[in-house]
Simulated assay, not measured.
Amino acid sequence: MEIIKGAGEWARPAAEAASDWVEHLKSPDLSIGTYCIPAGGVDTQSPHTEDEIYVVTSGRARIVTPSGAAEVGPGAVIFVPAGEEHRFVDISEDLALLVVFGPAYGSRTDTPA
Rank of each mutant, 00 (worst) to 15 (best):
I3H: 11
P74G: 09
P13M: 05
I78R: 06
E52A: 05
P47C: 07
A14V: 08
S46E: 15
D51V: 02
V64A: 14
P103I: 07
Y35G: 01
E9V: 10
A18V: 09
S58C: 11
S107L: 14
H86C: 10
D20C: 10
V55S: 08
G75V: 03
A61V: 00
G73T: 00
V64L: 11
E9G: 07
E93D: 10
T109S: 15
A104Y: 05
P28G: 07
A7M: 15
D94K: 00
H86I: 13
E52D: 05
S27V: 15
P74M: 03
G33N: 09
L98N: 06
R62D: 03
D43M: 02
V100N: 04
L25H: 04
V72H: 09
P66T: 07
E84I: 11
E71M: 01
G8I: 02
D43E: 04
S107H: 10
F88Q: 04
F101G: 00
V77D: 12
A113V: 14
Y35V: 00
K26D: 03
I3A: 14
P103Q: 11
I91W: 01
T57D: 01
G41E: 11
K26F: 01
S92H: 01
V42S: 14
S27F: 05
E23T: 03
V72P: 09
R87F: 06
A14G: 13
K26E: 05
A82K: 14
E52G: 03
A70K: 05
K26H: 05
V64Q: 11
T109E: 15
S58F: 08
K26R: 15
A96G: 10
W21E: 06
G8S: 08
C36K: 02
T111R: 14
S27K: 15
F88M: 07
W10L: 03
A14K: 09
A18H: 12
Q45D: 13
E85H: 12
Y105L: 15
